[in-house]
Every structure is written in C-alpha cells, then in structure tokens.
Design a protein around this nucleic acid. Structure first.
Length: 268
RNA sequence: GCUGGAAUCGUCUAGUGGCAAUGACAAGAGACUGUAAAUCUCUCGCCUUCGGGCUUCGUAGGUUCGAGUCCUACUUCCAGCA
C-alpha cells in the first residue's frame, strides 16, 4: 500500500481537509511505547499531542491508565486528558468533535497535530470521518453501521503509524509495567476512585483498579492481582491489534524506527 | 515400615460402567460507528475429502459386550501412625 497519506483534494468542500498539513497518528496496543516516542517526535517537529485514549479522558485516573506525567510531557502540549469525571459520559462522537477542533487549532498555530493512542474506535472515527447521527448519546441502529469495506478510505491528510512488537516482547513489557504500577501511588489513587465512584460507572471497568482494589481489600494476594491484571492487559492488547489489523492504512514499524521515519517524512 | 487419600487437555477441575470425557483459567482466531481498557462470537487430543477416522484419563495386567470409572500389582505424591 501507499506510504504517503492521501493528499489529492477530492472536492471543493473538503479541500481544506485534504490539503492541510499532515497529522501524525501514532497507535499501538497498550504498553507499546506510544507516549515516549510521540513526545520525542513532538519536540523535534513542533508537534502537539492529542490523546486518543478512552481512559485518559477521565480525571483522577492517572497511574492506572499510564497517563503521561507533566515530567514526561516535557513541555509538549497535550490534549484529550482529564476531560471529564469518571462518572460522566463521554462518547466517540464527543471525542471526534474534540479532536477535530484541536487539530484545527494546532494547525492554526503552525504546529504539527499528533494523535496518539490505542482506542481504535476513536482513531477510525477521526481518520475515516465517521458521521454520528441521532441525539447525542444514542446508539445508532444496526442498519446504519458500516461494514469493513466502507471503512477503507482515509479522509484527510494523516500519516498513520503503528508500533509493532513481537508477541513475547510485548507480554514482557506489560508484565514489567504492571510490576511498576503496583505502588503506593496506585493504591492511593484506587482508594480515592473507589470511594468517589465505586465500580458501577463504565470508566472504572479498567482492568487495573478492580484488581488493585481486590488486593487492597485482601481478596487477592499481590502476586495473583498482578497476574490477573496482566491477563486483562494482554487481552486488551490483542483486541486492539485485532481492530488495527483490518486497517490497511497503518504503516507498522518497530519502536526505534518510528522517530527517524517521521522526522524524514516531515523534514524531508 | 504400616495405614488412609490422590494421580484426568498448558494449569486447576467434573466425572463412579456407555465419554473424546465437565467447568474455569491460560492460549489462538474473530466481530464491533455512541461510556470501546467496554461488549460479543468461535476454536482449543491428533488426522480428516467434514461423513468420519485414530489415540487418550500415572504404568502394566485383569473382569466386562463395553473401563477414566470395578479388581490386582507397580510407580509417584500428600497425609495419619511409627
């Protein structure tokens, strides 16, 4: 497939979308290293990052969602973090509108918009320009769902890069990340979230908090909690990969090749 | 050394005469345009021209039309007595 994003304007109305400067999309399964590379790239090319992560939108969910810290961000502007409280509803459609607005703003500043995340549905909504009908928050009828084949054309100037890892390496990375995550900080965060929201809201259906809580309440040993977290995490990674697999527009690269590739693409 | 109990798919587990064998986890594949880290589906002894075929339940025999299930011995493990 073509490595170049499509940039050949289709019709007058969407000329702006097609002809504007590229938007770099960096995606990959959980734990693939998106945060690190994206910040490094942003610093080099004057990028601003929009997170495409359905958990990072929630306030107060930091450690358990591996949200980048101020320190990690290192001055690179980030959007799409801490948008709503965990008990508030925020849908794909909301995210798409938000992301499009931010891309426009970033371009207006002559910076490079970068969309970084692992929520496939969000990314597809943006790059394939999904249209959401009906009142906000309403599920559209099945009859309106588009099949895979209707989703093949990227609408806009996107460079889409996926981070690829051998399965065993990805599993190892996930294990290590979980080991690091189980700390006093996570316990404190978990206690606060459980106290405020319980486990009834959708946002709290994030693998790690449930198991961290079970460990804290003595229902699971630390070992067992970590093990179960790992299974959840790895299953998530596999589902994400299954989703991305059908997207032929993704340029898959190993982590260390992404930075030079993007730089060459942008700078020439 | 004697006396109980136990050995079943990668792991745990159901199973007391009709079974390729239950459930869970793990693993693999997949669907998914409205909370998506969600939700849902399929596969999971081996082979198959998808009709079936073949080999399995610690090992070796035995009883039975038929044994994971009953009997005998052996091996290993837990456990009570020594």
């Amino acid at each position: 497939m073509s490595e170049e994003p499509r940039n050949d304007g289709r019709d007058e109305a969407s000329a702006e979308k097609y002809c504007s400067s590229p938007c770099i999309v960096i995606l990959g399964p959980t734990g693939s290293g998106k945060t690190g590379v994206s910040i490094k790239i942003a610093k080099a090319i004057g990028g601003e990052i929009i997170s495409a992560d359905s958990r990072a939108i929630y306030k107060g969910m930091d450690i358990g969602t591996a949200k980048p810290t101020r320190e990690e961000m290192d001055g690179v502007p980030h959007f799409g973090l801490d948008l709503v409280n965990p008990d508030e509803r925020f849908t794909v459609a909301d995210w798409k509108a938000y992301a499009e607005a931010k891309i426009k703003e970033i371009r207006a500043r002559n910076h490079v918009p970068m969309v970084v995340g692992g929520t496939g549905l969000y990314i597809d909504a943006l790059i394939y320009d999904y249209h959401f009908k009906g009142p906000t928050g309403q599920k559209i009828g099945d009859f309106e769902q588009k099949s895979c084949s209707d989703r093949t054309e990227v609408k806009g100037n996107f460079l889409i890069i996926g981070i690829k890892w051998p399965t065993e390496v990805l599993r190892e990375r996930l294990k290590q990340r979980i080991d690091q995550m189980f700390s006093e900080d996570l316990y404190r965060e978990t206690r606060e979230l459980v106290e405020k929201y319980g486990f009834n809201c959708g946002a709290m259906k994030s693998d790690i908090y449930e198991y961290a809580w079970k460990y804290l309440s003595g229902e699971l040993t630390l070992e067992k909690a970590k093990e179960l977290c790992f299974y959840e995490d790895y299953h998530l990674a596999k589902r994400q990969l299954t989703w991305f697999k059908r997207n032929a527009d993704i340029k898959w690269l190993e982590l260390e090749h992404i930075y030079p590739f993007v730089l060459k693409y942008i700078v020439g």
